[in-house]
Amino acid sequence: MVRTGTGTRHTARMSVLLACWLLGNPTAWGDVPSPDVLRQVQSKVVKIYGAGGIRGLEPYQTGLLISAEGHILTVWSTVLDTVEITVVLDDGSRHSATLQDTDVSLEMALLKIDASDVPYFDLVEVAEVETGTWVLAFSNLFGVAAGDEPVSVQHGCVSARIDLDARRGVFSTPYRGPVYVVDAIVNNPGAAGGALTDYQGRLVGLLGKELRDARTSLWLNYAIPLTTLQPTLQAMLEGSARPDNPFDQLRPAEPWDLPQTGILLVPDVLDKTPPFVDAVAPESPGRTAGLLPDDLIVYVGEELVTSCQAVRESLAMLDARQPLRMTVMRGDELRQYEIPPQAENRTRE
């Protein structure tokens, strides 16, 4: 009797869980997001045109209206690197926009157009979602929509919420925070600055630039959670002091850099110049440790490095009060060297 009771209770708990989960995800099984929701979101998404059009750089991207007066949140990119930024609203009206503010570490920009009473995303109603939530992506990918044509809608599911800095040097972006990884291909040319929403149309994230994993050549499909951008965005809107860069705390107060080691790399002329050692200063810590010209740096600490840029970035994340381990390829042999801590010697430089 008691056993049955426990069993029943267990079943009950399972059922409640199941019911909650199903009720929480009614859309997971093929329900269509309502057309009203889609239209509402589309009306708050804008097409942005600016610089580019050469060497595979698209001159367009997407943005989100976040105030009735025409504030627009988008991704900081080369498209905005011009005095003539044009914004086309969902109703087809064209506006010239001014760049009000940027945050390079969050890769975010705030634009403003002269407008009143435009539809906008209320930043109070921003949602955080769990892995497994069905989401929609709204963007003008490939510049498909022009004039008053509504932006494209894609659907997908949040596969994970992870930190992008898990592997430095893998993705070429200064952003080092959490991202929603999505199972749909949402980061296409022109999609940056678009909206990731839940099926109720609540803003969840800002679609980021196209990012490719340097090791696997796979493209990442992701959006930056709006909750991460919100404090800075709020400060930008109010013109108040920015909150500290949340990722700065990850950096050591006294990081390693190349001059400390005495290592000079080959001139960084390519996108990904292989990190060959050009010279090592005599009697420098690097030389003392055993590094030689023509060594190819493979690891800085635990980090695989594939370019001169990656070497610099990796060094900046390592504390100079700790010994620095470097693995190099000399000929066809891998060798590991350790440079003793240099922090206390800094004053000398």
Partner: peptide, 8 residues
């Protein structure tokens, strides 16, 4: 999938 756009 879903229809992402019409009259393109």
């Amino acid at each position: 999938g879903i229809i992402s756009g019409t009259h393109r």
